[in-house]
């Protein structure tokens, strides 16, 4: 699991995965993709990183409890859903702007539903990473109990207080 090859590969693959996940999530409105897929893909990347470099490394990368992500995602999604209500529109009405100027002579097709997608993405990442991380902590602690010494993954901690 923790071969050098794997570790090195993970260092390269993980950022790529995350970028790709972001890309997939953003383009989801018009091509295959979307919040769910992007979120799951980002989670796979993060979990891969954890497998390669251990728990503490993931904690350095994501220095907060995954529930923060879940809460943030839910908040974004609910705000996106409720804002049209305040503007007199039905719940979850999407604002569509056909040619939104984003500078540099470029326009994009914009739909406010993309915020909702971002919320979904954050929730999915939080839930998935949170579950896997918690379960692997259990495995680690059981390993400590059984073998009397922490696993290599656990021992490679940098003393992160979290």
């Amino acid at each position: 699991m923790t071969s050098t090859l794997f570790k090195t590969a993970a260092r390269l693959i993980v950022p790529l995965t995350l970028i790709f996940a972001a890309y997939i999530a953003m383009r989801g409105h018009n091509s295959p993709g979307g919040g769910f897929i992007g979120g799951l893909m980002a989670s796979v990347g993060l979990i891969l990183y954890r497998m390669a470099h251990g728990r503490a490394a993931l904690l350095r990368l994501l220095p907060f409890h995954p529930r923060v992500l879940v809460a943030l995602g839910l908040a974004i999604a609910y705000v996106t859903a409720l804002v049209p209500l305040a503007l007199g529109q039905p719940l979850l009405t999407s604002l569509v702007i056909d040619g939104l100027y984003i500078g540099l002579g470029q326009t994009i097709h914009f739909a406010s539903a993309v915020f909702f997608d971002i919320g979904v993405l954050l929730v999915v990442v939080g839930v998935t990473v949170g579950m896997i991380q918690r379960l692997s902590e259990e495995v680690d602690s059981q390993h400590i109990k059984e073998s009397g010494c922490p696993t290599t993954a656990a021992s490679s901690t940098g003393g992160n207080p979290r």
Binding site: F36, L40, V124, V127, T128, M131, L135, E138
Partner: peptide, 20 residues
């Protein structure tokens, strides 16, 4: 189905934790 897959995944995580 997309909804069902993701929900199913979350429920699976919950179920496995229940097993533990």
């Amino acid at each position: 189905i997309l909804t069902a897959i993701v929900i199913g995944f979350a429920v699976m995580g919950f179920l496995l934790t229940l097993l533990i």
